[in-house]
């Protein structure tokens, strides 16, 4: 029972569950099997439904807590950006959407950056939060990723990117499209510095995110069953007017088609990342720096 070792320690768990406002009697339903799980049990199991193995979305800060040694990490501040340069409104004003998402998540935008150690190795990680406007890639998210990659270069650390996004943030129009080449510039900086870049694709990762930094890692890891693709399934169905095959655009499908190196259960994620970073950086000696 390997996963038991990876389950977060109770003391730490109580720290974050106290912060959040979850009703005591909350039960969560597995989207796949309909199985009901008590939220505490779900959290204790890293948001994986115990029987079905379905990987639920998890709060972005939890990624850091579970990734870094001793759950100890430094939050890296991300740059402030110009708000709503397009003065965009659809059925709602973009500034109102931003305000609502900030209130809901407690974060400024969709990408958080943290630095610490993973099994002794220096790592900077970024996490994309699907709960913040679908994890969409706008200027703030782009700047946060660039900042994170620059921080990795400054610290001579590996960079780990947890993706979760519906794609570009349409409310920022062309500026959102520009985050594709902009983040790619930062990927090039990592590469030139000889630092490993690991991508962890989580459910879902689509559009301009997949078509830029999410597909440029040295190693691509996917969580089981994640939807990963360029065009969303609905767009493809409308274009070709036929039903899509079972399992299309899921992690296992991408693995089979050569786009993903490993499909890794969340309970094995930390160990896998630690091992990859150690193997990739060992020759440079960076992995030997004491914690």
């Amino acid at each position: 029972m390997n996963w038991i070792n990876n389950v977060v320690r109770p003391k730490i768990r109580s720290l974050w569950s106290a912060k959040r406002d979850v009703p005591e009697n909350l039960w969560v339903k597995c989207p796949e099997t309909g199985e009901m799980v008590f939220h505490r049990d779900l959290e204790a199991n890293q948001w994986v439904i115990p029987n079905s193995g379905y990987h639920m979305r998890m709060p972005p800060k939890e990624r850091f807590v579970q990734l870094f040694d001793g759950s100890d990490y430094e939050a890296i501040a991300t740059p402030a950006v110009t708000q709503d340069p397009l003065k965009f409104r659809d059925e709602k004003r973009y500034v109102d959407r931003l305000r609502d998402s900030r209130a809901k998540t407690g974060n400024d935008d969709a990408v958080l950056v943290g630095a610490g150690r993973v099994e002794g190795n220096a790592v900077v990680a970024a996490v994309q939060d699907f709960d913040f406007m679908g994890g969409s890639l706008g200027t703030a998210a782009g700047e946060a990723i660039i900042r994170g990659m620059e921080e990795a270069v400054a610290r001579s650390a590996a960079f780990v990117m947890f993706t979760a996004s519906g794609g570009a943030r349409m409310q920022e129009g062309i500026l959102s499209l520009m985050q594709m080449p902009r983040t790619t510039v930062a990927v090039e900086m990592l590469r030139e510095a000889g630092l490993p870049y690991l991508v962890v694709l989580t459910n879902p990762t689509l559009g301009g995110v997949t078509a830029s930094y999410a597909m440029l890692g040295d190693v691509h890891i996917a969580e089981p069953g994640a939807l990963i693709g360029f065009a969303g399934p609905r767009v493809i169905e409308q274009t070709i007017r036929e039903k899509l095959p079972e399992g299309f655009q899921r992690s296992e499908y991408l693995h089979e088609h050569g786009m993903v190196d490993l499909v890794v259960h969340r309970h094995e994620m930390r160990a896998t990342i630690g091992r990859l970073v150690r193997l990739l950086t060992h020759a440079k000696g960076t992995a030997l720096i004491p914690a």
Binding site: T210, A211, A214, M215, G229, F230, A231, V235, I236, T239, I240, L244, P245, F248, Q249, H257, G258, M259
Partner: peptide, 12 residues
Amino acid sequence: PGIGAEERGQAE
């Protein structure tokens, strides 16, 4: 946006 294009890694 098509099945073959996705299969062969359009995003990549």
